[in-house]
Structures are given as C-alpha cells and as structure tokens.
Design a protein around this nucleic acid. Sequence first.
DNA 1: ATGCTAAAGGAAACCGGTGTCATTTGCAAG
DNA 2: CTTGCAAATGACACCGGTTTCCTTTAGCAT
Lengths: 376, 376
Amino acid sequence: MLSTATASRIEAVEAYSGHACYDSRMKNAEKLNETPASKPTINDIARLAGVSKKTVSRVINRSPLLNEDTRERVEAVIRETGYVPNPQARALALGRNFLIGLIHDNPNAQMILNMQQGILEALHGTEFELVVRPVDRGSATMLSDVRGFLERQRLFGVVILPPISENDQLAELCDEIGCRYVRMGSAVLDDADHMVASNDRDAVVEAIRYLISQGHSRIGLIAGPHGFRSARERREGFEIALAEAGIKLPRSLVADGHYTFESGIAATDSLLDLSPRPTAIFACNDEMAAGVLFAARERGLRVPEDLSIIGFDDTPIASRVWPPLTTVRWPIIAMGRSAALKLISGSIAHADEVTEPSTFFSTLIRRGSVVPPAKA
Amino acid sequence: MLSTATASRIEAVEAYSGHACYDSRMKNAEKLNETPASKPTINDIARLAGVSKKTVSRVINRSPLLNEDTRERVEAVIRETGYVPNPQARALALGRNFLIGLIHDNPNAQMILNMQQGILEALHGTEFELVVRPVDRGSATMLSDVRGFLERQRLFGVVILPPISENDQLAELCDEIGCRYVRMGSAVLDDADHMVASNDRDAVVEAIRYLISQGHSRIGLIAGPHGFRSARERREGFEIALAEAGIKLPRSLVADGHYTFESGIAATDSLLDLSPRPTAIFACNDEMAAGVLFAARERGLRVPEDLSIIGFDDTPIASRVWPPLTTVRWPIIAMGRSAALKLISGSIAHADEVTEPSTFFSTLIRRGSVVPPAKA
DNA sequence: ATGCTAAAGGAAACCGGTGTCATTTGCAAG
DNA sequence: CTTGCAAATGACACCGGTTTCCTTTAGCAT
C-alpha cells in the first residue's frame, strides 16, 4: 500500500521532468476531461451504432463494401455526436500525416504569402493543414535538414517554391523518401504531376515587344541572379524579342541584378551612366524596377518622360509607387491552388478526374511607367 | 484458401477506395520498407540497448530517475542508429501535438511573414513545427472554425496575430479547449504569459513630437479602422502629443482610413481639400502613408517640401517610394520569437528560467519625408 | 541476519485509428 | 439439399510512443 503511494509520487516526478508545463491551464484541461463532453472516439461511435470499430472506419473512409443501412446508421451517430477522427491516430496507423509542407527560400514576402493563400484555398474543407518550412539555400546542411523534416513529420506532400524548387537534388530526395511533391517554377522543370510553371519567357517577350511598339530601341535590361532559372528565362525573353525586331544592342545595356531593390539602384546607375543612355529599362522583378525608379529620381530624371520602366511580378509595390509601374503579373494564387490540388487530388472526395493545369500564363499590366521615348 | 485470396482482393478494393493514391511513388515507398534502412523505432532501440521501451522513453524525456550508466548506453544506441521519436505516436499518446499554430486575419503580407520568421527562429532546433491558419474575421463561423481546428489538431499552442488577437472570445476559446496561446497586440490585452505587446501609443507620441519640433502645427491624421485596438492606440498617441504641445485642431483634420493604400488616397484627398491645408500628415500605417504620397503627387504637390508625411510599420514600401518615408518601426521578428518562446518554454531543454519580455519598444525611423513646413 | 525503504527498470495496458484475416449470411448453381 | 462464392461485418494485431503499476535490487538501520 505504501509502496503504491510511493510509486505514484515517483512517476509524478518523472512526468514533471518530462514536459514541465504545470500552469493554470492544466487544471482547466483536467476539468474538461471530467465533463462527459470530451471528444468521442471511434470506439464510442462503434458502441452507439452497435457495430465494430472497423465498420466505423469503413464509413469514414467511404468503403464501397458497406451495406447502405449500416452506413446510414453509423453516419447518423457520427452527425449526432459531432465525431471527428483523430488525425494523430490516423497519422500513426497510416504512417503518414495529413500535412502539406511549404518549402521556400525566397525573400519575396508577397509571393510566399500569395502562394500560401492559394494552397490554403485548395486545402480548405479538407483534413489537410499547411506547415511552412523556410530553408537556407546556402547552407551545407540544407538537404539533410529537409530530409530530417520530411522523414520525421512524414508529410503527405510538399510544395516547393522557387528558387529552391530548381534544385533537382531536393526533388530526388522527396522521391527517395516517398513524399509527394510539386515544384513551382518559371519554366517546366519536371513532369506534369510534379510541376506547376509559369511562362516567364513568353511574358517577357510580350513586354519587350510592347516597349518596341512604343518606339523604344535602346532598352536596358537588369537581369536576375546567375543560377536562377527565372532569371535565365526572363533574360532569354528579352533577347528573343530584340532579335525578332532586328535590334542589336551592346553588351553594356545588360546589367546584373540580384532581385533586390538596392541591386536595382546600382544597376540603374551603371545603365544611366552610358551615353547615349537607354530610353527604357526592363527590370527582371518589381523590387529592382522600384530601384530603377528610385535611382532615376535621385538623378532628377522624370519617369516616364525621360525613362520608361517595366517590372515583373506585379507585387504591391508596383502599383504604389509613382508613377505606378507597368509590369508582368503571374497568377500566383491560382498556381498555389493548383499545386496543392495536384498533391491531394485522389485523396479528396470531390476531386475525381480533375486534372490541374501545369502551365499558367502571365499578362502584361499596363500602368503609367511606359510612354514613347522623347525625340532625341 | 480460396476464400483467403478473395478476402485479400476485397480489402485491396477497400483500401483503394479509402485513399486512392496508387501512383509510381507508392512502389518506391514499398521498396524503402524492404530496405533495412527504414527508420528505427523505440522498440529497436530498446532491443539494441537491452532495456525496455519505457527506459528508452525515460531517456528521451530526461527522467531524473535513471542510472547514469543506463542512460549513456541508451544514448549511445540512439546516436548510432540516428533514432528520432515518431512525432505522430507521441502526439497520440500524449493527446497533444507538437505543432504551433499561427492564426491571423491580416492583409499585411510583410508583417505576417516577419512574424513567421520570428516564430520559426524560436522553433528552430526543437521538435515543433509551425502550422498557418488564416481566418476570416467577418465570418459568422469564425469561432467554430477555429474551435474545430484546435480540437482536431490538438495543437500545442497558438500565436494569434492582430487584429484578430484583440478578439477576447478567441482567447477564451483557447482557454476552454486547453490550448496555450499568445496574443500579439498594440497594447497590453492579457496577462504577461499570454501577450506580447508593442507600445504603439508612445511611438506615435514620439513621431508627432518630432513633427511639432520641425515646426508643424497643422497636422492631419489618417486613422485606422474603427474597432482595431492598434488604431485606437495610435490615434490616442496623436491626441496626447498635440495636447501636450497645446495645439488644438479642428475635427476635420482627422480622416478615417482602413489601413489600405486606396483609403490613404481617399483620406488624403479630403485632407488636402481643406483650407488651409495641413503641412504634415501622419498616417496610421505605411500602406496609407504611401497613399498620401501618391495622392499628393497626383495633385502636383511636392513631398516633403509642400507636405511632410510619417507612416507606421516600416514595411518595405516605406523605404522604396520617393522620398523614402519617415516611419515607426516595431520589432516584429523579435516579437514573434518571443511569442513562440513563451509558448514552448518549459518544454525545451535549454530554456530554464528564461523569461521572455512582454512589451517591445518601437523606434522612429527618420527618412526623407519630413522637413519643416514652408513659410506661409 | 532481518526488515524497510528508495532507486531503477520492466510488463502490460492504453492512445485512436487502420490492416489482415476470419466469420457469418444470402443466394445461385449443381 | 448441398456446395460455392461474394457481400457484409467483426476480432484482433499493429502503428510507436506514454502511463500505470509492479518487481527487482541495493543500501541502510536495527
């Protein structure tokens, strides 16, 4: 008798040391347990419906092998009790979670958040939740970090955002672990089941054609960072459009950028030092385009009269500066939604035969930053 | 014998109907299972170390009741095998997940993302993951949505972002369910364990004092939406600063805004229609301050010569417009980190006695959008 | 030596689902 | 009237941890 009391005390200490969280809320939780209102389990449903656990499980999972009467009886009990299956138990039994991971290494907040929004729209009403996971592309342990994350959490699948999505090793890792994945990108990087792409190159061709149609021929380019697929695609679009118009430009009209505001300023400074200077600049993203505007103002240049500007992404900044920037909009939210649907289709009821598109098209948004060049 | 084969086929159908996901990757997963490399479980560790499951569990949970020899032996096996406890099994046994939820209803992408960054910094290296959950504050089912989310997922805790954090019912709901929570806010809304606050009011007092010190006395205010605590705090700061300087302004110098760019433009239009018009405008966030700048430009006003502007938040837009905006910066990332640490401290090893601050201080960032007013 | 206690560790139940396999029942064919 | 087979359902083990409770062992006073 005494030894029993002792043992209890011991284990109390043990528990305390384990996860020390004895605050006031614990008491509330205990009270909750006392009430009969604690959540019903599959056993409760089985008992109330007079069937076995397995039958309830079959109802939950829409097994076609059930008698209609049984199904309806169980469903009635489920409705009455408000029963919801415990996702942790399901995850354990299935060896797989109902979590979708979002892996990104991108500095563009708006892009990530729009992507999240699109994914969450697709996940809404399903049992899936979204887990975010930023990674450090520079880190030597990046791959093993992600591996640990995927293996430990046993995610259902992941959406990988650019630019880290361009890393083929990451995709291979997912394959190896058996984790579904969808990569977002500026061009087709993988097969249709694993990829959602925008057509950056075509969009840039359209943008540059527009500049040319307005009479520009000395057009500067602020490129994206080396090694980024989006940077390559956008630059190729630039070159294609010039080539088809028969315009040949000196190498000096192409400046390097890093997709940052500051790099946009620096690149613009070098471009505007040229003589004759360009009458228009295409920056490979809006951050840099905002830098172009900023740098132009610092020099007292008027935009668009003295310099036309086009950006890429249609982030909020593009419409908030003065003048608002002409830019390329790509359907981030729709792409996020599509990526998530690709992952979970087959696991959700109403998604029979829905094939999500893999390529999305961007559009040129014409605002006030482009006019014909001043007569020289 | 035949009936066995039949049953197998039946259950195969059953499984198919349940979660239909028979693609090529399934095969990979099966192959993985065949390899001996499949993840070790607590049973493997127990066997290899020659102890019981419970002892391994005690090692994992740092029970003080263990013999040092035993602990070291088990830890050695854990290291060798690279064993990591299965979070799903733990979640099931403990009745609680190792997931931190982020509940928000905010349109400000940069704020949410910075907050995520701060939280993830705190979570890094722990077993916790971050699950994001946007809610619709207008929706009638908001509370029951969140309830379902919390109960189903059995989250360890949640961080609630403004403005939804100001909803007391939400906090009560967390209490009732027994889910830890921390609310972020512009003023103290709850006790120190459940709250991380910035001092918006004081920050605005400082900003307005600065305008006054520059010689401004006709200062317009673009307020935030009714019902937002941050809007109230910032407005009070405005009034306090004017009162202490003995400045009395007509009611017409206060315009309503909704924290959006467009509402900033509209409010500015009404303020600049006044005669005499204000020489400075304080907008309660940067989005609206950008709207002020935009609207001023549309009228051909020079900023800052004809109109000084101060914003609030120091979002990227503040430094990317021309002229860059003087604004108030609050330490979002640090606050996010602190919120997460408040939640998990006690459950992580190295967090003994660390008490996280509950109030954070904002600073005025002086850029180019404020100069003394032109002599009238 | 004996008895008592505390420390250390193990056996088995449990968390709430799913998978495997067996059983019951109904019905058509032989 | 069996026999054979499919449909419907159930019993039970299992997923990988934690908790409860019990046993073994060692140390110490009597």
